[in-house]
Computed example of a mutant assay.
Amino acid sequence: MTSDSGIHRRVTLATWPTPLEPAPRLARAIGLGADDLWVKRDDLIGLGGGGNKIRKLEWLCGAALADGATVLVTTGAPQSNHARLTAAAGARLGLDVVLVLAGTPGASASGNLALDGLFGATVVWAGDVDGEGLAATAERVAERLRREGGVPALIPFGGSSVLGARGYLACGQELLTQAPDVETVVVAAGSGGTMAGLVDALGPARVLGVHCGAVADPALTVSALACGLSGADHPPHELRLRLDQVGAGYGTLTEPVMSALTLAARTEGLVLDPVYTGRAMAGLIAAVADGDIVAGRRTVFLHTGGLPGLFGHPAALARAEAELSAEDAQGTAPR
């Protein structure tokens, strides 16, 4: 089902709004009041295992269908949440999907890669390339599909374009109806579109992005997307961005992130992933510790999903399994 919005066309892929839930035990554990911390559950969006990319794909797939597309082509890392959800959206809409992924076959096929196959996507491995090389490979794939009679639609990296960011402009407006007194929304800053939409809806002072290492200049990326949404000026220097959680790089697991994963799980039963939401939670914890977020004011953590990525991250899995308390033969394991 599609609906008109100005000159754009949006396809409905989920049921809105997503829940806003309290997290009192986690709040107290990190130094906030019990009623200060809430979680916006965009991980509970049903399609394809859930996650923030669905909001973007409603707009991007709507445009693709309006243009007569028969196949979606997008790019990402091997464990890309965006690639997984593009594959799921294609399955829902009856479109073929080609995923152009960095790297080579032979690494772990668990996590998002397993779901890519389950949804029927075709994977093209681009080798060891940077973002420009990945985009160039996707263009060549699209050209080949045209020669073969297909009508490809190129979906941007992470779903992050001005059109895709409209999904999080809507999310910001949705959040204001659920928590009009929200002081800070904490969100992973990956390809930029999620944070950009929130900034345009809520203003830069109320959005704290935690850089995950997916783009070279997150402030410039988010600023350009946010400014393109409504024409409002959101210069890079006005954005609230933490750059301290990337560690050695995008795919690496740091101690603060592992601690954040464990704490969220043990206080609220909340499962985060090691690349995006784990970094965002580590950034939230650091922001409380250094006084950027304070008790007595409502903070919302935007859970953008990504659970399958946990099962494709060997280091995170090994650390999580090492946390198990094994019961000995006498049944004297600690409680």
Rank of each mutant, 00 (worst) to 15 (best):
Y168E: 04
L169K: 10
A170T: 10
A170Q: 12
C171G: 13
C171V: 11
C171L: 15
C171W: 10
G172N: 07
G172R: 06
G172C: 11
Q173C: 07
Q173G: 10
Q173V: 15
T177N: 06
T177A: 14
T177F: 10
Q178C: 02
Q178F: 01
A179R: 14
P180Y: 08
P180E: 09
P180W: 14
D181P: 08
V182Y: 06
V182C: 12
E183A: 15
T184G: 08
T184K: 14
V185Y: 10
V185K: 06
V186H: 05
V186D: 07
A189V: 13
A189K: 00
G192V: 05
T194C: 11
T194H: 02
M195Y: 01
M195F: 07
G197S: 11
L198A: 07
L198K: 04
V199Y: 00
V199L: 04
A201Q: 11
A201I: 06
A201R: 10
G203P: 12
G203S: 12
A205D: 15
R206W: 12
L208S: 06
G213M: 03
G213W: 12
A214I: 09
A214C: 09
V215F: 06
D217E: 13
P218E: 00
P218S: 03
A219D: 09
A219K: 07
L220I: 02
T221R: 15
S223H: 07
S223E: 07
S223T: 02
A224W: 00
C227I: 02
C227A: 14
G228D: 01
G228R: 01
G228K: 05
L229I: 12
G231Y: 10
H234T: 00
H234A: 01
H234M: 00
H234L: 00
P235E: 07
P235N: 05
P236C: 02
P236V: 02
P236G: 02
P236H: 01
H237P: 02
E238K: 14
R240G: 00
R240F: 08
R240P: 00
R240W: 11
L241T: 04
L241E: 01
R242M: 04
D244Y: 04
Q245E: 15
V246Y: 09
V246R: 13
V246S: 01
G247Y: 06
A248R: 15
G249Y: 08
G249N: 13
G249P: 09
Y250L: 04
Y250K: 08
Y250E: 06
